Deep mutational scan, measured.
Amino acid sequence: SPEEIKAKALDLLNKKLHRANKFGQDQADIDSLQRQINRVEKFGVDLNSKLAEELGLV
C-alpha cells in the first residue's frame, strides 16, 4: 500500500541521514537527504525514482 511504501522510504532515508551526520558527509548531501524526506512526507514515493529502485519496488 502507499502508506507502507512511504513508511519504508522514510525509514531508509532517515537511516541515510543519520549515517551522513555520524560520518560527517558534505552539508550538501545532508541537505539533499532532508529534501528527499520532506518530498516523501508530502507526496509519497514516485515509482519511477531511484528511491523506488532502492526499495525494490521497480
Rank of each mutant, 00 (worst) to 15 (best):
N14S: 09
N48K: 10
L17F: 03
R39M: 15
Q27Y: 09
N38E: 15
D31V: 08
Q34P: 00
Q36V: 10
K50V: 10
A52T: 02
N21H: 14
Q27E: 08
K8D: 04
L57G: 03
Q34M: 14
Q34E: 11
L33G: 00
S32P: 01
F43E: 11
A7P: 01
D46A: 06
G44E: 01
Q25L: 13
F43S: 05
A9V: 07
D11Y: 06
A20Y: 10
L13M: 03
K16R: 13
E41H: 08
A52C: 04
R19M: 14
K6N: 06
F43T: 04
A20S: 04
A9M: 07
K15Y: 02
F23P: 06
D26A: 11
P2V: 11
I5A: 08
N38Q: 14
N38L: 06
N38I: 13
I5D: 05
E54C: 09
A20F: 08
L51K: 01
F43K: 04
E54F: 08
A28V: 10
I37Y: 02
A7S: 10
F23E: 15
D26E: 09
I30N: 03
K15H: 08
N38V: 14
E41N: 09
E41M: 08
L57P: 02
D31Y: 01
R19D: 15
D29T: 15
D11I: 05
E54N: 04
N48C: 12
A7E: 10
K22Q: 14
Q27V: 08
Q27D: 07
K50N: 08
I5V: 10
S1T: 14
R35D: 14
D29M: 15
L17H: 02
F43I: 06
L57W: 07
E41L: 08
L57Y: 08
L10N: 01
K22P: 03
P2Y: 13
G44S: 01
K16S: 05
A9T: 02
E54W: 13
E41D: 06
E4V: 10
D29V: 15
K42M: 12
E4K: 07
L51A: 02
V45N: 01
V45R: 00
G24R: 04
I30A: 05
V40W: 03
